[in-house]
Amino acid sequence: MPPHAGQGVSCAVEDAVAIALLLKHYRISHRFGTDDSLRRTAKAYEAVRMNRVGKILDIAARMGETKKMQTWWREKIRDWALWLFCKLPESLNDAQFGYDVEVDIAKYIAKSGCEPN
């Protein structure tokens, strides 16, 4: 995650929760061996996380390009827009800030039809 995106720690925490939940779901037992459990966990992790992380990386790339060469006037407009954005009701930002990784994992598990061990 690029440092100017401001999403590195957030994505890392989401990743940790996703991996923990998936490891719990595909835990090693008589049904799955260690290799199979890890393979299933990695496949599910990628399926769940790649879409969200890809969107964040796309936004970060666009924002990084706009920061390279800004005039004084554009910086002021950006700062004002950010100030205004922070004053808006939180519910308008639910798509980005209301993300729940646990819900995403539960949907994936339900859709995949795989019963826990």
Rank of each mutant, 00 (worst) to 15 (best):
M1A: 10
P3G: 05
G6H: 00
V9Y: 12
V9C: 09
S10F: 09
A12L: 04
V13K: 14
D15S: 02
D15K: 03
A16M: 07
A16T: 07
A16V: 01
I19T: 07
L23R: 07
K24D: 13
H25I: 05
H25V: 01
Y26C: 07
R27H: 14
R27G: 15
I28Y: 06
S29E: 00
S29M: 05
H30N: 11
F32C: 07
G33M: 00
T34F: 11
D36H: 07
S37E: 06
R39L: 13
R39D: 15
R40D: 10
A42M: 06
A44M: 02
R49E: 00
R49L: 00
M50H: 14
V53Y: 15
G54V: 03
G54F: 04
I59E: 14
R62P: 02
G64R: 02
G64N: 03
T66A: 13
T66I: 07
K67G: 10
K67N: 15
W72P: 12
W73R: 10
W73N: 09
E75M: 13
E75H: 10
I77L: 05
R78S: 12
D79F: 01
D79H: 10
A81H: 07
L82T: 11
W83D: 15
W83Y: 14
L88F: 05
N93I: 05
D94R: 13
A95I: 08
Q96D: 10
Q96V: 04
F97H: 02
F97S: 00
G98F: 00
G98M: 01
Y99I: 01
I105L: 01
I105E: 00
A106V: 08
Y108M: 05
A110W: 03
A110C: 09
K111N: 09
E115D: 07
E115M: 06
N117C: 13
N117H: 08
